[in-house]
């Protein structure tokens, strides 16, 4: 097992997440794809921590912060989607265009 294995796996997951975030119509689907991308980045961080700085554990600390931010982001996104659903009665991002000229 080398670092490259983990980095390439993370790149594949990130590309899958990008594709999904660009093609989903549903706001919840887009959020799921963003979670895939965040997880891919966390694999990178833990991989760097294991192979490049095994004694300082910097990557693992950063992963904890990243997971915390991801949880906060999910909570805010949930609130926004519920609020939008209450006003527009849809979560389809193609139909949410109130602020588009």
């Amino acid at each position: 097992m080398t670092l490259s294995h983990y980095l390439i796996l993370a790149a594949i997951l990130f590309a899958i997440g990008t594709y999904g975030a660009l093609t989903r119509r549903n706001a919840i689907g887009i959020l799921l794809c963003i979670e895939i991308m965040l997880n891919a980045v966390n694999i990178n961080l833990v991989g760097f921590s294991r192979y490049i700085t095994p004694n300082e554990l910097t990557g693992q600390i950063f992963t904890i912060f990243s997971i915390t931010i991801a949880a906060a982001e999910s909570a805010v996104a949930l609130a926004l989607i519920i609020s939008i659903y209450r006003h527009v009665k849809t979560v389809d991002v193609d139909k949410i265009n109130l602020m588009k000229w």
């Binding site: 983990y6 799921l32 833990v46 921590s49 693992q60 992963t63 997971i67 949880a71 999910s74 949930l78």
Partner: peptide, 25 residues
């Protein structure tokens, strides 16, 4: 990758909290 604590945090926060949040949403 020898990151047991991160693995547990991943299971607790992502699967335990974020996924449940999405199901509620």
């Amino acid at each position: 990758l020898f990151a047991e604590f991160i693995a547990m945090v991943q299971i607790l926060i992502y699967i335990g909290a974020v996924v449940v949040l999405f199901l509620f949403l």
